[in-house]
Design a protein around this nucleic acid. Structure first.
Length: 272
DNA sequence: TTCCGGCCCT
DNA sequence: AGGGCCGGAA
């Protein structure tokens, strides 16, 4: 069964429609589910690393970094004890470098307060730095195969596509209700893998349904932005930590007052 | 040039 | 509630 064989939108209130939905998703997964390295492990630390990397970075790019990273930093203790600069050097290329700081702070807390074992409660995980509802839930479900309710971008796309037809500015709360009502509680890990794979497929051959989400926002241009300068400055700094402001400006071809601004921001955030 | 993505801070 | 963060693919 595929999505072209059922009338859309499906009604979340209809048992028959929910059943159809389940079959469409699982049939696609059986045929075309992705075999990703962080799906082959039950090691909560490995899953923790993958979830942080996948927060704002596409699978293809994470694939190039994940294996090497967990080899270099094999557990929470190693990550906690490593210098931030060294962790950043293996992170470099993934973007959103603040995630490195959050990861290290998580590692410290998990090592010192939780005996090096990833907590198994969504509430506890949500209180850790850099971990919000989606990541906390994903960690519990993928590490411990326990049913939780969450959405990320692929899941959001799937539910908008099947249950919200032409709906505009759909709030996440409504999508979460659908996720909860269709969750396969007997096999949550596989169910969420299947949802995400279907969502990835959906975006390949039709307009992205996520623009109909209330949380969708158009981004400001990257070229010339402060984010771009930050990225360049940090990259240079990771390679040569002791460069002066003027040297950094020269190497990044950026006005030194912009470099100075970025440096003080990075310092405030704990990068240097 | 446009697009994507979850968390934190304001 | 809204803005900022990254780098690479399309």
């Amino acid at each position: 069964m595929n999505s072209l064989q059922c009338e859309l939108p499906l009604a979340i209130t209809s048992h028959k429609d929910r059943d159809t939905f389940t079959h469409v998703i699982y049939d696609y997964y059986k045929e075309s589910g992705r075999d990703l390295p962080w799906r082959q492990t039950r090691n909560p630390y490995h899953i923790f690393v993958s979830e942080f990397m996948l927060q704002q970075t596409q699978v293809e790019r994470v694939l190039k970094k994940y294996g090497h990273f967990i080899l270099m930093f094999p557990d929470f203790e190693t990550l906690h004890r490593a210098s931030l600069l060294r962790v950043l050097s293996f992170w470099s290329g993934l973007g959103y470098n603040r995630r490195c700081i959050y990861m290290k702070r998580c590692a410290q807390i998990i090592y010192t307060l939780h005996g090096g074992a990833l907590p198994d409660s969504v509430d506890t995980l949500s209180r850790l730095p850099g971990i919000g509802r989606a990541t906390a839930s994903a960690l519990v479900t993928f590490s411990y195969d326990r049913p939780t309710v969450f959405i990320e971008t692929n899941i959001r796309r799937v539910f908008l596509h099947f249950f919200f037809g032409q709906g505009e500015r759909v709030p996440d709360a409504e999508l979460l209700t659908c996720v909860e009502k269709t969750l396969d509680r007997s096999s949550p890990r596989i169910w969420y893998y299947a949802l995400m794979d279907y969502g990835t497929m959906l975006k390949k051959f039709r307009e992205n349904p996520n623009i109909r989400s209330k949380s969708y926002k158009k981004q400001p241009p990257f070229e010339g932005s402060n984010r771009q300068v930050r990225g360049k400055v940090l990259k240079v700094l990771v390679a040569e930590p002791h460069l002066s402001e003027n040297e950094i400006a020269l190497r990044t071809k950026t006005q030194s007052h912009r470099v100075g601004k970025v440096l003080s921001e990075l310092e405030k955030e704990g990068f240097i």
